[in-house]
Simulated scan of single mutants.
Amino acid sequence: MRSARLAVLAIVLTALVAGAGLYYSLVYAYYDVLAGDDLPEISLISATTGEAEGIAVSEVQAIDSDSSPIRLRACFETPTPLDELAATYEVYENAVPLNAPGWFSCFDAKQLGAELEDGDAVAFLGTPNINYGIDRIVAITPAGNGYVWNQINACGDAKFNGDPLPEGCPTPPEGMN
């Protein structure tokens, strides 16, 4: 009877340790807090030239991971009025902010998504195809709060699903399956 209890206790403890390890790896282990030269340049695509142009930013906070091209999240402030940005830079349709770990509290994807849907924030194209099939998106609110994330675009969605590429997609890099 005693050995059965010890076996059950060992199984439960092993499950708890494994669960804690899995939770830690999903929420903390793969993210790096970025600082200094590692911070992403925050730029938008000019509506007239099609070129990336850096914008004035401050208070940048960012996290990223080498494990996936869509793990970048960043928050910042900009003094440039939203209406000026919207008149100058390429607006990004169908922007869908991706969740950030709960400990990265400046980035609330649910709230930002609602603001984008309601028109209270505007999403811009930051860098097209930063990796093949992945666009960098920059969203800004009227208060000057900004958010950055990488999002799979239509070309990436088709390529990653094994579907034919939509018209206008660049050729995938050699060796990309």
Rank of each mutant, 00 (worst) to 15 (best):
A87L: 05
D118Y: 13
S68D: 08
L116V: 08
I134M: 07
E117A: 15
Q111P: 09
V122K: 02
I55S: 00
A29L: 09
L44D: 00
E93H: 11
A123R: 02
A4D: 14
I45W: 00
F107R: 00
E59P: 06
V17R: 01
R136L: 09
N177L: 15
D37V: 15
Y89R: 02
N177V: 14
G50I: 10
T141I: 01
F76D: 06
V96T: 10
I63L: 08
L9W: 12
A121E: 03
S43T: 11
S68M: 12
L9N: 14
S58C: 11
I45D: 00
G133W: 02
L44C: 02
V138W: 05
N99P: 15
V57L: 07
R136D: 06
T48Q: 10
E77D: 10
V96P: 10
Y30A: 15
T14M: 07
E93M: 13
S3F: 15
A18N: 04
Y31L: 02
G119I: 04
Q111L: 14
D135V: 07
L22N: 10
D32N: 12
A10W: 04
P97M: 03
L82I: 08
W149M: 06
A7T: 08
Y132K: 05
T88P: 04
P170Y: 07
G19F: 00
F76S: 06
K110A: 15
P128A: 15
L44M: 08
E174N: 12
N150G: 12
V91Q: 09
Q151Y: 03
D120S: 07
V138I: 12
I42W: 02
N129V: 11
E93I: 11
P170A: 05
Q61G: 11
T88W: 04
W103M: 09
V91I: 11
W103D: 07
W103K: 08
K159T: 05
F160M: 04
D37S: 15
V27K: 08
L22I: 12
P164A: 09
L34F: 04
G50M: 08
A143T: 14
P170C: 04
D83P: 06
N153S: 13
N129T: 13
I55D: 00
D66Q: 14
I152G: 05
G144H: 01
L98A: 10
P172K: 03
F124D: 00
S46M: 06
E117G: 13
V60H: 03
